[in-house]
């Protein structure tokens, strides 16, 4: 499966997240984080299902320390739903089934 998750860093955060017409699900991760790698397939499976309602991006906290600080990320993986670049909800689910249920409750 080709990745449908957009990689975001401090250079394209404004364009991809702040200016997004859709709410953005941000996956804070790092390449060395095994639970983050385990979560990624669920997010990649969700992305096409919610392509009309949601954009999904991932932010490597090591490569983007300012974004890590902006969202006060102190452990990973960490999932935030953001609107206009600001967090509106934190998602705690870790399987596609639970995440879909959580998103269905949050999204209009």
């Amino acid at each position: 499966m080709a990745s449908t998750i957009i990689a975001v860093d401090e250079d394209n955060f404004e364009a991809e997240v702040v200016n997004s017409a859709l709410p953005v699900l941000i996956d804070f991760w790092a390449p060395w984080c095994a639970p983050c790698r385990a979560l990624l397939p669920a997010l990649e499976a969700l992305a096409p299902m919610y392509s009309d309602a949601l954009k999904i991006v991932k932010i490597d906290i090591d490569a983007s320390p300012a974004l890590k600080a902006k969202f006060n990320v102190q452990s990973i993986p960490q999932l935030y739903l953001a609107s206009a670049g600001a967090p509106i909800a934190r998602l705690v689910s870790r399987t596609r089934t639970q995440l879909a249920a959580e998103l269905d409750d949050i999204l209009p």
Partner: peptide
């Protein structure tokens, strides 16, 4: 619990 054609990746 998803369509069988979509479960490989997870």
């Amino acid at each position: 619990a998803w369509p069988i054609a979509t479960v490989s990746h997870e």
